[in-house]
Lab assay of single mutants.
Amino acid sequence: NEDWLCNKCGVQNFKRREKCFKCGVPKS
């Protein structure tokens, strides 16, 4: 499991996502 947490809103995103699904901030 290599899901990632958004640095802005803290929601968990799937590994394949390049941007946060909730707030749209790019993966860092």
Rank of each mutant, 00 (worst) to 15 (best):
C6Y: 09
C20G: 01
E18G: 05
Q12E: 07
G24T: 05
C23S: 02
Q12T: 12
K8E: 09
E18S: 07
F21Q: 10
W4K: 05
E2W: 05
P26Y: 15
R16T: 15
E2Y: 09
C23P: 02
R17A: 14
G10H: 15
D3V: 05
E2Q: 12
K8N: 05
K19T: 13
K15R: 08
C6K: 01
C6N: 00
C9S: 01
F21K: 05
N1C: 10
F14D: 12
V11L: 08
D3C: 02
K19Q: 08
P26S: 07
C9F: 01
K15E: 12
R16C: 04
N13A: 01
F14E: 13
F21A: 11
G10P: 03
R16H: 07
K22H: 05
N1F: 09
C6M: 00
N13D: 13
D3I: 10
K19Y: 00
V11M: 13
N7F: 12
N7L: 14
N7W: 10
G24Q: 05
N13C: 02
F21V: 05
E2D: 13
Q12N: 09
K8H: 14
F21R: 10
C23K: 01
R17Y: 14
N13M: 04
P26W: 06
K19A: 11
V25P: 03
K27V: 09
L5H: 15
Q12M: 04
F14C: 14
K22P: 01
R17T: 14
K19V: 08
V25E: 13
C9W: 02
R17M: 08
N13L: 03
P26D: 08
W4T: 04
N7G: 09
F14A: 10
G24I: 03
C6W: 04
V11E: 13
N1A: 06
G10T: 15
C23Y: 00
C6T: 01
V11C: 00
F21P: 03
R17V: 12
G10A: 14
E2F: 09
Q12F: 05
D3M: 12
Q12R: 12
K15Q: 12
W4N: 07
R16K: 14
R17L: 14
N7C: 06
C23V: 00
N1V: 14
K8C: 04
K15I: 15
L5C: 08
N13F: 01
W4E: 04
R17G: 13
F14S: 07
E18V: 03
C6G: 03
N1I: 10
S28C: 15
S28T: 15
R17K: 07
C9I: 01
K27R: 10
N7E: 15
K22N: 02
K15P: 10
L5R: 07
C20D: 04
G24M: 03
K8P: 15
Q12P: 09
L5Q: 15
N7V: 08
C20A: 01
V11S: 14
K15V: 07
N1D: 09
N13G: 03
R16L: 05
G10R: 06
V25H: 13
K27P: 14
C9L: 02
L5K: 13
K15Y: 11
K22R: 06
C6H: 03
C6L: 02
C9M: 04
P26M: 04
G24D: 00
N13H: 07
D3H: 02
W4Y: 06
K22M: 02
C9A: 02
Q12K: 15
N7Y: 10
K27L: 11
K19W: 06
K8Q: 14
K22E: 02
F21I: 04
N13W: 01
L5V: 15
K8I: 04
C6F: 02
E2M: 15
N13K: 01
K27W: 07
V11R: 09
R16D: 15
N1Y: 01
E18D: 10
D3S: 10
N1R: 07
N7M: 03
W4C: 03
K15M: 04
N7I: 06
Q12L: 03
P26R: 09
R17E: 11
D3P: 01
C9V: 00
K15W: 11
N7D: 13
C6Q: 11
K8V: 04
C23D: 02
G10I: 12
Q12S: 07
K27S: 11
L5G: 11
K22W: 00
G10Q: 14
E2V: 03
W4A: 04
Q12I: 13
D3E: 08
D3N: 11
N1L: 09
K19D: 15
V11W: 08
Q12D: 08
P26G: 10
F21M: 10
K27T: 14
V11A: 13
F21C: 11
K27M: 12
L5E: 11
E18N: 08
G24R: 06
E2I: 08
E18M: 11
R16S: 14
K8R: 10
L5I: 15
C23L: 00
C9Q: 03
V11D: 02
E2G: 07
C23Q: 00
E18I: 11
C9Y: 00
F14T: 13
L5M: 07
E18W: 00
N7S: 12
E18P: 08
V25A: 12
V11T: 15
G24W: 01
R16A: 12
F21G: 09
W4M: 09
G10N: 15
V25M: 13
V25I: 08
K19L: 08
K22F: 00
N7H: 14
